[in-house]
Amino acid sequence: MSRLTFAKSAAWCVLWAALSAPAMADGPLMPAQVPSVYKQECAACHTAYLPGLLPAASWRRIMGGLERHYGSDASLEPAQVQQVSAWLLAHAGTYKRVREEPPQDRITRSAWFVRKHREIAPAVWQRASIQSAAQCSACHTQAEQGQFDEHQVRIPR
């Protein structure tokens, strides 16, 4: 490879990385500081979702209706609601795939979730080892850290 060709290739790589960085940076990752009440209360029934998986408007509605949270009473003390809400809103998704609010503010009904899981038969979600689509960590072994690499998926029997 000539020096000029190598330089052009290197320049394109640097340009691609610079242009891609913002898109990758605001993808779903679990923020470093997670409120303990979020881990305790939310993860008691389902995966402690990454705040970046929903837009701020969805989180506002969810946190404003905890007494009727998808058929359960998930009420918290007002100070806890304020703390968790502030954290969720500060880390809410703003990137392309979460700009559109999913039906009923359900992550599992968002267009990107449905597309990514289209090969999963409905019966798989009903397995006792999985329970529902809301249990990301049942199959995504590193979901709690915000890692959803398809090479890390293990669908339990």
Results as ranks from 00 to 15, higher is better:
A25R: 14
D26G: 02
G27M: 14
G27R: 15
G27K: 06
P31T: 12
P31R: 02
V34K: 06
V34T: 15
V34L: 12
P35Q: 12
Y38D: 13
K39Y: 07
K39C: 05
Q40Y: 03
E41V: 14
C42P: 00
C42K: 08
A44K: 03
A44T: 05
T47W: 10
T47M: 11
T47K: 05
T47A: 07
Y49M: 09
L50F: 09
L50N: 15
P51E: 06
P51M: 12
P51A: 14
G52S: 15
L53I: 12
P55D: 05
P55S: 05
A56K: 00
A56R: 03
A57W: 06
S58I: 00
S58L: 02
S58P: 04
S58F: 00
W59N: 03
R60Y: 01
R60Q: 09
R61K: 07
I62Y: 01
M63I: 04
G64Q: 10
G64Y: 03
G64W: 07
L66R: 02
E67P: 10
R68H: 11
Y70Q: 14
G71I: 08
S72H: 15
D73W: 00
S75Y: 02
S75H: 03
L76T: 05
E77Q: 12
E77W: 08
A79K: 00
Q80P: 03
Q80Y: 02
Q80C: 00
Q80E: 14
V81E: 10
V81R: 01
Q82C: 07
Q82K: 12
Q83M: 11
V84C: 04
W87K: 11
W87P: 09
L88M: 12
L89Q: 01
H91K: 07
G93T: 11
G93M: 03
Y95F: 14
R97Y: 11
R97P: 10
